[in-house]
Design a protein around this nucleic acid. Sequence first.
DNA 1: CTAAACTTTCAAAACTTATTGAAAGTTTAG
DNA 2: CTAAACTTTCAATAAGTTTTGAAAGTTTAG
Lengths: 168, 168
Amino acid sequence: MKLIEAKEQFTQLWGALGSSWGINRTMAQVHALLLISSEPLSTEDVMEKLSVSRGNANMNLRDLMNWNLIYKEHKAGDRKEYFKAEKDIWEVAKRIAKERKRREIQPLIASLNSLVLIEESKKDPEAHDFLMMVESIQNVVTKMDAAVDTLIKAEESKFFGAIVKLLK
Amino acid sequence: MKLIEAKEQFTQLWGALGSSWGINRTMAQVHALLLISSEPLSTEDVMEKLSVSRGNANMNLRDLMNWNLIYKEHKAGDRKEYFKAEKDIWEVAKRIAKERKRREIQPLIASLNSLVLIEESKKDPEAHDFLMMVESIQNVVTKMDAAVDTLIKAEESKFFGAIVKLLK
DNA sequence: CTAAACTTTCAAAACTTATTGAAAGTTTAG
DNA sequence: CTAAACTTTCAATAAGTTTTGAAAGTTTAG
């Protein structure tokens, strides 16, 4: 395979991957493009390489900035904005984890907390079963939230090291 | 809040959650319904409680069985099939992890492996950068795959225990 | 200040994914 | 074997999501 095909395939792969994890396909493709580009790219570059409209390119670049995965960069003597990606993959993983935690895990914990405030007594067997289920979800989700915090703070080697130990 | 409202909200919550993680909303709602139901439910029960068609109910129940999250159960003197969910939440988390690993992480690793087989030499700086990127993704993804294996095999307490230690 | 260069917005259109429901298929009691 | 009870399929349709592109907005060089 030629490098140019491999890059194309990589972009497709990253896009499909994003799709199946609830991330907009084009956003993931733009990310892929910047990950494997040596030079920062402008909005026009992205439009051209992915054959997408200006609006679409702009919106996905903005979203990627909100996810903290890419940065604006200015070239001397050029008014255009260029974008470059964070290239340390462990750092990328941590930032995605951090963002999903903030957007999804934390609201989930809040919603679960409100569900245990039902009026019925624990003595009502139906209420009891429901509370047990919600509480056990709270328990696992809270632990996962803490696990993500650890991941966000840990060094790559420490994090995977601790997990590898469990295999022994 | 009344129990009945709380159950309704729980179903909505689980559905929205599934949606944002690339899982069909209705499938997640059916799962929620069975998680908080004391009795096994029939296809008709699901149709009625979620106001969905027979085809939709059937398809999502079948999918949930493929994910190993629910089981068929037969009641004596009744030809209908009833369904009940695995209710141990740690077990549910492990099964979802196992299934996503099988469906997504493993094909991803295979695709990445094929991308490093480019014709260009590592001495070409562009090829070099590309290979470094793909290899660093392989590295992190492979470790995550191993981490998921550990999660699948570990006891809940051991798994989270190891992670908590990292916080100290 | 002005106009050119560039970025952002957003309503309409295209595309993707999920749902319906009637028809076909299967199972079982009698 | 037969017909009733139940489950599955799938083409048409609906719902949801993403994309387009022209217009509005913003910035900067001169």
